[in-house]
């Protein structure tokens, strides 16, 4: 807690943490930095300009994107640049071919010496990822390839998610490694799809030989708002077009009122064993009252600009 108090959560920028970041980068000296490359795209049908952030570490799919301090700070820079603009209608994050992102860069972890260092890495992820849920415009995760751990959590922080049916692996494998999905996974996923299904992804699957799910299941579990075939996914994702009727009805509703299967109280008595091992889910607007870090921006942004994602 001492650390927490000495470094209150920044609400807008990471200013003031420069020295901490540089020491983290030293710790992760061998980090293969996943760059967040931002580019403007003109959305079809005159929907406006979106910023498309590509996560790419410059290697092919055999060396997947990961997040170390350098990668997180690169993503932060891209998000901050988007936040400073008033001429955009959306921000989207996607991966390199075949890979979205596979989580934290663990290569520097053995070098961690003390609690503060470890905490700083966790906190940096929080500070950066949360911004995806707190921008004034809707954010989209376009999950084009394998997504694990922190990669999944990046997507969970976004307002909406699309997934390619060609995604071969989508998982929160932390429990398999003796960790927890600490960059928002344990919090955001139950609120998105309900505790029971979240437990499957966070606990059951990792403890069952680290089982992973595929793109189609990501959509069926309600994690993604739309599913696209690989041959069209990249285009359609950018276009914001919804082809599935299910996707249409789901994503056209504002986030705060969107139906979340499994999160209504009435469904809870039906799953007592699961219900007993986790706190009951609450409607999102209440979160600001008990969340340690009020996320008012997300709660109050009840209705993103309709033009950006209205089904066509």
């Amino acid at each position: 807690m001492a650390i927490e108090q000495s470094h209150p959560s920044p609400t807008t920028t990471l200013n003031g943490d420069a020295s901490r970041h540089s020491s983290m980068r030293e710790l992760f000296g061998s980090e293969v930095v996943t760059q967040a490359i931002a580019r403007d795209v003109q959305l079809p049908y005159g929907a406006g300009t979106a910023v498309l952030i590509t996560l790419d570490n410059g290697h092919d799919h055999t060396k997947p994107n990961t997040f170390g301090p350098g990668g997180l700070l690169s993503l932060d820079e891209a998000i901050e640049a988007a936040r400073a603009r008033t001429d955009i209608v959306a921000v989207a994050v996607t991966g390199k071919p075949f890979i979205f992102a596979v989580g934290a860069d663990l290569t520097g972890v053995p070098a961690v010496q003390d609690r503060e260092q470890a905490h700083a890495i966790g906190k940096l992820g929080h500070d950066v990822f949360r911004k995806l849920g707190e921008l004034d415009v809707p954010t989209f995760a376009l999950v084009n390839g394998a997504a694990m751990g922190g990669g999944v959590e990046v997507a969970l922080h976004c307002t909406y998610r699309t997934v390619s049916s060609g995604v071969p692996a989508f998982a929160l494998p932390e429990a398999f490694l003796g960790l927890v999905p600490g960059w928002g996974g344990t919090y955001l996923l139950p609120h998105l799809i309900g505790a029971e299904k979240a437990l499957k992804l966070i606990v059951d699957n990792p403890l069952a030989q680290n089982k992973m799910i595929k793109g189609k299941q990501v959509f069926e579990m309600g994690i993604a708002d739309a599913l696209f075939e690989p041959a069209t996914s990249s285009r359609s994702r950018c276009a914001g077009q919804q082809r599935s009727s299910r996707a249409t009805s789901r994503s056209s509703a504002p986030r705060s009122t969107r139906a979340r299967p499994g999160t209504t109280r009435s469904t809870w008595p039906g799953s007592p064993s699961r219900a007993n091992c986790t706190a009951p889910p609450r409607p999102r607007p209440e979160r600001s009252s008990w969340s340690p870090r009020p996320r008012t921006a997300r709660v109050t942004r009840a209705s993103p600009p309709r033009t950006t994602h209205s089904p066509t």
Binding site: A38, R39, V41, L52, I53, T54, G58, S234, R235, C238
Partner: peptide, 9 residues
């Protein structure tokens, strides 16, 4: 590689 994904419209 340099500019990431984009959309030609």
């Amino acid at each position: 590689l340099e500019k990431g994904w984009g959309l030609a419209t």
